[in-house]
Simulated scan of single mutants.
Amino acid sequence: MPDEIHNQIESLKTDSQQLDQTLERYDIDELLENEFNQIDQQFRQLEIQYQSLKNARRFLNNG
């Protein structure tokens, strides 16, 4: 009986290689970094557009 229980426990253990692959696929830090970089890039584009509009308005008001 103890061997049977031991075998069942061993069969239910998580495979360390499979666990590592899953952790790599769902790396939260990397996902957050990518999301932050995308938001940062969009913000920089918005900032450039804002500065362009601001400069165009200044040019048109002074011209």
Rank of each mutant, 00 (worst) to 15 (best):
L46C: 07
Q42C: 10
E10I: 08
F36I: 09
E33T: 12
G63L: 09
Q42K: 15
E33D: 09
D20H: 07
D20A: 15
T14W: 09
D3N: 08
R25H: 03
L32Y: 07
E30C: 02
E47F: 08
T14F: 10
Q17P: 00
E30P: 00
E47Y: 10
Q38C: 01
E4V: 10
I48P: 00
D27A: 05
E33V: 08
H6P: 04
P2R: 07
I48K: 14
R25D: 01
I5Q: 08
Q8H: 11
A56K: 08
T14P: 03
I9Q: 01
Q51P: 02
Q8S: 11
Q49R: 09
S52N: 15
E10M: 11
Q38Y: 01
S16V: 14
Q21S: 06
F36M: 10
I48M: 13
S16D: 15
N37T: 03
L12T: 03
Y50P: 01
E30T: 05
D20W: 03
Y50W: 12
G63D: 02
R57G: 02
E47D: 15
D27P: 00
Q21H: 05
R25S: 06
K54Q: 06
L60H: 05
D29E: 02
E10R: 08
L60W: 09
R25M: 03
D40F: 04
H6T: 13
I28V: 10
S11V: 01
M1R: 06
Q45H: 08
F36P: 00
F59M: 07
D20N: 11
F43I: 13
K54C: 04
T22S: 12
E47M: 12
T14V: 13
Y50D: 06
Y26S: 04
Q18K: 13
L46W: 03
D27I: 02
E35A: 06
Q42D: 14
E47W: 09
E4D: 05
N34W: 04
I39L: 03
Q17N: 07
E24H: 04
Q17F: 05
L53N: 15
Q41T: 15
L32I: 09
L46H: 08
T14M: 13
L23A: 10
N55P: 00
I39A: 01
L19E: 10
N62H: 04
L60S: 10
N62Q: 11
E10Q: 13
T14D: 10
N55D: 15
N34A: 08
Q41M: 06
E24F: 07
L46T: 03
F36A: 15
L31C: 07
N61T: 12
K54R: 09
H6L: 15
L19V: 10
T14K: 12
D15V: 03
I48V: 14
L53I: 09
Q49I: 02
S16Q: 14
Y50N: 15
D15M: 06
E24K: 15
